[in-house]
């Protein structure tokens, strides 16, 4: 049996930049040593964010259509979603725990509820931005309610809806960090660990990645919008 020399310990002559003694904010060594951990956290962060926004859209659409059809419901729908928005995230997650436990579901549902507030408003506003003449001429051409919505109203409402979607996505990325309360916070888990162990490189890396993730998703949405609404191109921003 051969005795393996522990290779994990860095040579004393040149302590790694994330050792307890130096504890530097920016540390390339940390990035390469903990690469797996960082990638895992980012993937979890992205998965939770995307799931929450998709769930938010899926709930927001019928709600917005309902509020448009029955104006009396509108103030209720908007009032309730604004009320939810008032509740701090750190308090909303615990309130969901009795029903969904300490699971990613808790975080996804909580974040979807926040996204809902922005999305319902955006969808309602988007549909309202469709000019009446367009709606009337489509009806005159023989469009039924369903085809009118899908072929005429939605495409025209898209710029406003996408603006709401961008706001919802960017704030969801930031909010996901609070999910670390129930241990599913993506990069927030690294931030939490960084605070409790006073680990600066980990903390700064996770924070910067969080902002970068928000920016990347925002750019993706802008590009998607450009692809989906080719008629707005050339008119100029």
């Amino acid at each position: 049996m051969t005795v393996t020399v522990p290779t994990l310990v860095a040579p004393a002559a040149e302590p790694s930049c994330y050792s307890r003694l130096t504890n530097e904010w920016i540390c390339g060594q940390y990035l390469s040593d903990r690469q797996d951990q960082i990638v895992d956290a980012t993937v979890q962060h992205l998965a939770i964010t995307v799931a929450a926004v998709v769930l938010g859209v899926l709930i927001a659409f019928p709600l917005a259509l309902l509020a448009r059809r029955y104006p009396r419901l509108e103030s209720t729908v908007l009032g309730v979603s604004t009320g939810v928005y008032t509740i701090p995230s750190l308090a909303l997650f615990p309130l969901l725990v009795p029903f969904t436990g300490l699971s990613p579901t808790t975080v996804v549902i909580g974040l979807a509820l926040y996204a809902l507030t922005v999305l319902v408003r955006a969808i309602l506003e988007g549909l309202r931005s469709v000019p009446d003449e367009v709606r009337e001429s489509a009806t005159g051409l023989g469009y039924g309610a369903g085809r009118l919505l899908l072929r005429v109203e939605l495409p025209l409402a898209l710029p406003v809806i996408m603006a709401g979607l961008r706001v919802a996505t960017v704030s969801t990325v930031a909010l996901t960090t609070v999910g670390s309360l129930v241990a599913y916070g993506g990069l927030g888990n690294l931030i939490k660990d960084g605070v409790s162990t006073n680990f600066r490189a980990e903390l700064l890396t996770a924070s910067v990645l969080c902002v970068l993730l928000a920016l990347v998703l925002d750019v993706v949405l802008v590009l998607t919008q450009r692809v989906l609404t080719p008629w707005t191109r050339g008119v100029g921003a």
């Binding site: 704030s171 903390l203 924070s207 969080c210 902002v211």
Partner: peptide, 18 residues
């Protein structure tokens, strides 16, 4: 407002405390 939205409150708090 756009900047404020992208920066997680938790991250900023953590950086200030550390």
């Amino acid at each position: 407002s756009n900047i404020g939205r992208a920066v997680p409150t938790f991250a900023l708090l953590a950086l200030l405390v550390t």
